[in-house]
């Protein structure tokens, strides 16, 4: 007989759900930027609507994790896995809020063409953050401490892109190249992308805790 077969199955289920939630968040972050740049309001709307599902997943995962704590008395690796799942679910929910925010911004932008130059960095920021998230969750599944330690440093690349975009927006504002409202909104989209990468860093820290038993701040 395998000891604690049901408990092990429940723990696997939590991890599967994190992967499902993570891939949805990764995809929607990229989609939100694509739709903003393409002025594809239908796709922007779909990202906004997906947020409801993500919120439900976060809540359900937390409740399932709490139920396991209450009923299974998890310790050691099991307990750390559950702690990581709860915190990763919360970080994913926040990243998706940022994606939803970009969707909202897309709907609020004036219909005038937006200077593409101001959003030139966004796709790379979204792709980089998505890739960091993808690998962080690979490290979560494979208990890969080296990988999870390496990822947060890549946030510097996103920060650089953020500063580059910010500089362009400041210049556009000073030279009155586009409306203040639009620049302000794009500034928020820029901020959302930058913060998303930071939150992937938080996920890495929880995965590191799960693996090693010590919580360290990586950046």
């Amino acid at each position: 007989m395998i000891v604690r077969e049901h408990f092990d199955r429940d723990l696997r289920h939590l991890q599967d759900e994190i992967l499902r939630m993570g891939s949805e968040v990764e995809e929607n972050l990229v989609t939100a930027v694509d739709a903003l740049r393409a002025r594809d309001l239908k796709r922007s709307q779909r990202v906004i609507e997906a947020d409801h599902w993500i919120n439900q997943r976060q809540l359900t995962l937390n409740m399932e994790a709490l139920t396991l704590i209450a009923t299974q008395q998890p310790t050691a690796k099991d307990l750390r896995l559950i702690a990581a799942v709860m915190n990763i679910a919360n970080e994913l929910e926040r990243i998706h809020d940022y994606a939803k925010g970009i969707g909202r911004i897309s709907l609020m932008m004036n219909s005038d063409p937006i200077p593409a130059e101001l959003m030139a960095e966004f796709p790379e920021m979204a792709a980089k953050t998505g890739s960091m998230l993808h690998r962080a969750l690979d490290a979560f599944i494979n208990r890969d401490e080296a990988l999870v330690r390496a990822i947060p440093a890549e946030d510097d690349i996103v920060d650089e892109l953020f500063n580059k975009a910010l500089k362009k927006m400041t210049e556009a504002f000073m030279h009155n190249l586009t409306s203040y409202e639009d620049i302000n909104r794009l500034g928020w989209a820029n901020h959302n992308l930058e913060r998303s990468a930071d939150r992937v860093g938080n996920i890495c820290e929880w995965v590191g805790y799960m693996i090693t038993g010590k919580f360290e701040e990586y950046v």
């Binding site: 000891v3 604690r4 408990f7 998890p74 310790t75 050691a76 690796k77 099991d78 307990l79 750390r80 090693t212 038993g213 010590k214």
Partner: peptide, 16 residues
């Protein structure tokens, strides 16, 4: 109970 050093301890306290 959160971070045992030895594998046998880990197995025992996690019920495996």
């Amino acid at each position: 109970f959160t971070n045992p050093k030895n594998e046998l301890t880990e197995q025992y306290i996690t019920g495996r």
